[in-house]
């Protein structure tokens, strides 16, 4: 790696750190006159401090919006290449894209494509997932007949039965609510705590140049 390349890397890294630091400082401290002890002019100072964060935020949102367009263009480009290799499904995708655009332009306000095609298909896929889960749950003990398998089956059955609106099954709802309120909630909170800590750690690593965001 020559000097120019190293300089480029250093410059891009510096820009990234600087922008990150400015954005974090502005978003954290901006628009808060209290940090200037509410001295005369503190409101103006707070507004000025908030300004870089606002501007950067808007710039990022615009860039992300453009990236959506670029993503669509890239998708089309990739599938044009696949059509050239004889991939029929890519051809179908491009044809669908064209039909959707044409439909929207010529039949404004007609929701048929979304409501009659995409929604039923995706809902059906979600329903298929449930069927697969039931089929899988029915053979858990086939693979492992032990206490953990029994516990899994018991919990699944309890939750399913508790969802049935029958008065005879009402007592199960108390058990189901306890499950959701105590063990599940504890696990969920642990997840959330982990996510929060990981976000803070990853954020500071990116800002300090120790790491790079997966977004590049």
């Amino acid at each position: 790696m020559n000097f120019g390349q190293r300089l480029g890397i250093a410059l891009s890294a510096f820009v990234a750190f600087a922008v990150g630091a400015i954005a974090v400082t502005s978003l954290l401290l901006g628009d808060n006159p209290a940090i200037f002890n509410n001295q005369p002019g503190s409101e103006r100072a707070a507004e000025l401090l908030a300004l870089p964060g606002d501007v950067l935020l808007r710039l990022v949102v615009i860039v992300i919006s453009l990236s959506v367009v670029i993503g669509i263009a890239n998708l089309l480009y990739v599938h044009v290449g696949r059509v050239a290799r004889g991939k029929v499904y890519s051809g179908a995708l491009l044809a669908s894209f064209g039909v959707a655009i044409f439909w929207h332009l010529t039949r404004q306000g007609d929701p048929s494509l979304l409501e009659a095609v995409q929604l039923p298909i995706e809902s059906s896929l979600a329903a298929l997932l449930f069927v697969s889960l039931v089929a899988g749950a029915s053979r858990v003990m086939q693979k492992r007949a032990d206490v953990w398998g029994l516990l899994f089956v018991a919990v699944v059955v309890l939750v399913l039965l508790a969802s049935v609106p029958l008065a005879e099954l009402a007592p199960l709802r108390a058990w189901r609510d306890w499950l959701m309120r105590v063990p599940v909630s504890a696990g969920a909170r642990a997840f959330l705590l982990g996510i929060a800590m990981a976000t803070v750690v990853t954020g500071q690593r990116v800002l300090l140049g120790q790491d790079r965001s997966y977004r590049g």
């Binding site: 053979r139 858990v140 003990m141």
Partner: peptide, 24 residues
Amino acid sequence: MTLGALASVLIIVFGNLVSALRAF
């Protein structure tokens, strides 16, 4: 949804009962 939940319970219980008996 109610019928589906009941049927799922039956399927899961019956399938695992057979499996557990076989393993036993």
